[in-house]
Design a protein around this nucleic acid. Structure first.
Lengths: 199, 199
DNA sequence: GTCTATATTTAGATAGAC
DNA sequence: GTCTATCTAAATATAGAC
């Protein structure tokens, strides 16, 4: 009896994973429901049974990633002690271009954003997700400020907005033209936002 | 004889304008070549004759916007004298949501970016465009620093990267959740990047 | 140079077998 | 619950008339 649920859960997981990969690499509209099912070793029938369609799959994907992204982004941040390295790690998460999930992360992120900006059904959960990421980041920055004895220049929330904004905006530019965005310059810019003197 | 060229030029312009509007509002893949032609009061035949297809239309659109964007972004910047107002004007260009072209600017921008990140044929001209925008912005910042007597904290180019990055990243967040991004906080963050004391 | 009409392909979605 | 087979709709692209 449990193995039925197990198989169902695996099908669901496989479909979501395949969707994440394909949507990120080719874009939502350029990917057919059939190709997602095929990549997951299932069929469109299963996909429609689970998610009701491609749009439903996108929403499910968003929900799964809701917390995971914040975790990915802040994983390094909370472990590293040296501040400059922590800041650089944040940028690296967004710009690394290897074969793992981080590879197309930025692409999928903006793919989702673009849908969210047009469709409230996607936009609202996405907005909540960003708010969650900022809340965690704000908490981290607030703790850091207290320990380091450096007063933040804005509320923790608005500092998180600025830090996240700078990271996203620089990552966007980096993707099109990597040499144009110097890693070290991003780090010093982040330092500026935190109210630290130049190195 | 000239009227032949004129009509051809007008058809081209109408198609590009219609494409900009529709691509921005609905996204490239969600828009059919036929709907673009219809919105431009022409037919698909004309579209294919001019651009060879929808992809060609996207490229042509990109070329037209190449310089225009920098002009739009910096138009206010160079006229306003009060620094905080200048900085706020930059952000306003990216976040205003009225009925004119600025409305969907950010959407079309990231729509193009997403295609550019996946297709070098789009990515390379797009990268050149961003470089152009940064060059103009760097020049403006450099001039300002000289006049104001405030030394920039990074090279003009890398300062432009950071300023543009912060603007884009904050605009992205603002689009999904306007109240979460305080205009004044963006201004002070920009001040930080320029090495100015808090207000 | 532009339009009408259409060929070709492929998408999303479903019905019924197992 | 999943798969096979198929239906309907819509998209890109073209061919030929004007």
């Amino acid at each position: 009896m449990a193995s039925q649920d197990q198989r169902r859960a695996e099908t669901r997981a496989r479909l979501i994973e395949a969707a994440a990969d394909l949507f990120a690499r080719k874009g939502f509209h350029a990917v057919s429901a059939e190709s997602v099912a095929e990549a997951a070793d299932r069929t469109t029938g299963a996909l429609y049974n689970h998610f009701g369609g491609k749009e439903g799959l996108l929403l499910a994907l968003l929900e799964v990633w809701k917390d995971q992204t914040a975790a990915d982004l802040l994983a390094g941040f909370e472990e590293i002690t040296e501040l400059d390295d922590r800041l650089a790690a944040l940028f690296d998460v967004l710009t690394r271009d290897d074969r793992d999930r981080g590879a197309a992360w930025l692409l999928l992120e903006l793919e989702l954003w673009l849908h969210g900006a047009r469709d409230p059904g996607i936009g609202e959960p996405l907005a909540r997700r960003y708010a969650g990421i900022r809340a965690r980041l704000a908490e981290g920055l607030s703790d850091w400020a207290a320990i380091a004895g450096v007063p933040l220049r804005r509320s923790p929330e608005q500092t998180a907005v600025a830090v996240l904004g700078l990271l996203i905006g620089c990552a966007v530019q980096h993707r099109l033209d990597p040499p144009a965005v110097e890693r070290q310059a991003v780090v010093t810019a982040l330092r500026d936002l935190l109210g630290l003197p130049g190195h």
